[in-house]
Amino acid sequence: MIVYNVARAWFTMKADAEAHRKSLGRPPTATATIRIDSREELAALLNGLMGLGEIEVMQANTVVAGPALVPTEVVERAQITNTPPDCVPAFLVREWERRNKREQKDNDE
């Protein structure tokens, strides 16, 4: 299976990925091609995207190394963080921070 990644968006067709890349004004290197040939590689991709790194799989007696199969920039773009990106409007960020502080306070009590 082959999939394409451009700026945290996933595509099944290269033409669609390239059109998206061009619409964003990104260079050709912004398109990452990821080829998955086995279940182990799929697990490695998913582990890499989740930031789990290297996981030992006892049943198959193999080691699945996520980041080795996925370009580093793809893993970095796919990371889930608690920091909103710059494209999120400031009023939404402030509301989100207030809500998180309120929930944190409720959980501490």
Rank of each mutant, 00 (worst) to 15 (best):
I2P: 02
I2D: 05
I2M: 04
V3M: 13
V3R: 12
Y4N: 09
N5D: 06
N5T: 06
V6F: 04
A7L: 07
A7C: 11
A7P: 00
R8E: 11
A17G: 09
A19C: 02
A19N: 11
A19H: 06
H20G: 01
R21D: 04
S23F: 01
S23R: 13
L24H: 03
P27N: 05
T29G: 02
A30D: 15
A30C: 03
T31C: 14
T31I: 10
R35P: 00
D37K: 08
S38D: 12
R39L: 12
L42T: 02
L42W: 14
A43Q: 09
A43I: 05
A43K: 09
L45I: 07
N47Q: 02
L49H: 03
L49V: 13
L52P: 00
L52I: 03
E54R: 15
E56N: 04
V57C: 10
V57T: 06
M58F: 09
Q59C: 04
A60N: 06
N61F: 06
N61C: 06
T62D: 01
A65W: 01
P67M: 03
A68G: 00
V70A: 01
P71D: 12
E73I: 05
V75Q: 11
A78V: 00
A78W: 08
Q79D: 02
I80N: 01
N82M: 12
N82Q: 07
T83L: 14
P84L: 15
P84A: 14
P84C: 09
P85S: 12
D86F: 07
D86Y: 04
V88K: 00
L92F: 14
V93Q: 10
E97N: 11
E97S: 09
E97R: 15
E97Q: 15
N100Y: 05
N100K: 15
N100V: 13
Q104T: 10
K105I: 05
D106Y: 08
D106V: 03
D106I: 10
N107Y: 08
